[in-house]
Design a protein around this nucleic acid. Sequence first.
DNA 1: GGTTAAATTGGAAACGTTTCCATTTTGCGG
DNA 2: CCGCAAAATGGAAACGTTTCCAATTTAACC
Lengths: 353, 353
Amino acid sequence: MSNMRARMAGIVSRTTIRDVARTAGVSVGSVSRALNGGKNVSARVARDVAAAAEKLGYQPDLQARSLRTRTTGMVGCLVSDLANPLYASIVQAAEARLREAGLLMIVGNTANDPARERAMVAAFRSRRLDGMLVAPGSDENDRAWRELAAGGAPVVILDRDVPGEDDVPWPAVLVDHREGARTATRYLIGLGHRRIALLTPGARMRPGRERIAGFKAAFAEADIDPAGALVCLQESSMDFAQGDALELLRRDRRPTAIIALGTRILAGALRAARDLGLSVPRDLSVIAIGDTDLAAVHSPAITALRWSLEDVGRAAAELLLQRLRGTSGEGQSRALLPVDLVLRESCVPPTAT
Amino acid sequence: MSNMRARMAGIVSRTTIRDVARTAGVSVGSVSRALNGGKNVSARVARDVAAAAEKLGYQPDLQARSLRTRTTGMVGCLVSDLANPLYASIVQAAEARLREAGLLMIVGNTANDPARERAMVAAFRSRRLDGMLVAPGSDENDRAWRELAAGGAPVVILDRDVPGEDDVPWPAVLVDHREGARTATRYLIGLGHRRIALLTPGARMRPGRERIAGFKAAFAEADIDPAGALVCLQESSMDFAQGDALELLRRDRRPTAIIALGTRILAGALRAARDLGLSVPRDLSVIAIGDTDLAAVHSPAITALRWSLEDVGRAAAELLLQRLRGTSGEGQSRALLPVDLVLRESCVPPTAT
DNA sequence: GGTTAAATTGGAAACGTTTCCATTTTGCGG
DNA sequence: CCGCAAAATGGAAACGTTTCCAATTTAACC
């Protein structure tokens, strides 16, 4: 009769497991068993329950189920900039893999704000999410992750160095930015360049740190003047990068080659070069970090460091699934993905200076 | 003692409202009231409960709460391509607004696959999500949305024409692609162009349909030969677009201007032009639909149709929140966002043919 | 101080599942 | 047909909240 009341009020009252039980003429327990395990269920009951469920269009309330089973079938994903193609592709790939496994993904944009980050983690915790993928805005805000992990939910880190606990590192998917930067730098040095600028966001996070390390390593191993290795730390804003790049290219002994991150900074550098009448690649060789549309389509096409964003997302999802299944013993707990140098038209030997 | 057992097994047993009640020396009901409404609670109880909750680090189980309150605090968001900057920005903006309102957002990538779409909707339904934002892969797969809405959860449509029920249209956020395309076309015609190609994905969905309509309208109102209006339907793949664009530009009476969508198709067109030795804008004027990094940074910079993706996401979230609050009476149920033409360097009068 | 209304409180029901446990049914060998 | 183990079943507890209801305390007024 409460059903009737609800119907009269215009509210569609869902069909519950109890309705199915009544229609099938069995107990709720039997319905649950029939629909889930299929174990310890007679053929007759199985048939009747299936028929009743079909007839009533029954869909179990996963919300209610999770209260009992202590598992929600949902995982969180925290990144600093969802609109950034670099993150978006990772998120998409991870979502695809997780959905395959029947999990839903909740996204959160942190905008590199530690407070937001903490708030999101708290929300995830309160919702009892089964696990999460995170790319912290800084490598040091690990208190929050530690707390979350203490709640028992597995956490997989995306391309960040979060200090581990008791020497056991966090499961993580890392990109080998160091080797990538080294390869690119070595390539430019091999072409004859001696003054090369690296334009990348600060060393506050792993990717930048690793790139700088690889960049310097290439200079060191080539045994040439390390003063030619110009590291320019940038925020990820295009205009800033352009101003900065202008200043850089106006110097007396300006770099003959530039390695620039992503879309924004690369664009800033290219615009600066154009504004100064520098032609790429004749006057300035350019390598992009990250193979974006811009790099591929630009005239001349820009040589780029490329790694698979899909692999990052998929590997992260895989790692998380592994943990969720509790088979953490087997399999790797970290993945290091390779970076390739895609040769195009934007690099040539420097003209005599 | 079940607590002790759990602790011995290494499982952190959460502190529940019952623990708080015990520590504060009140009933669970009072704790709930104190923590939520604050109504009908004496100062003493409020103080004691707050203290106990603080001391125990109590965090309510929202999963359990939602079972009782029939509201989950989560909304779904379904788009066809999360990695596409056009969608990613919308999703980001919507997420920001929803988070402000205390809601979590679950994303799903449908890849324009109706089966996936239905599966996701079913999952959303089973999880009792409060509402959803959807950009269906086709305008006709509305059965699924109808079903969902029947469950009582508000649905806001993103830039699609989904047939409404009983003449009451779905709440939707629409972009005025028609007017945008008309403006762009009129501009080119004004420059003297008479053969213009529109490169856009098929008319299966609203944006393409509207663009084509606006494109043709501009020709009609200019009273010039409508045979010059070349509509080229494309899939959103770069290589295909390039091949197609090559074919197009090799024709005898090739178009003197191109209006091309987004990143991929635009890139394909630019590459095709470059491969054929056509210079932009001297030999070919180009307008981009959607103001991407590529358009802004390309040399020459590409004139583009621009609308605010942030506004789309925010407006959609706003519309949804309105419905969730039940104040659907007031306020608009649809929003139509304007499209601007950003003039850059890629359009000039055609050279004599 | 007594009466009545209002505010507060504790206890229990309810939300929709799963899972435990005791009971009944089935299957099978003698 | 009996006895017994195994399988199937129904009923109820449990998950962690919120909310209803009845009971109690406080406030207010004369």
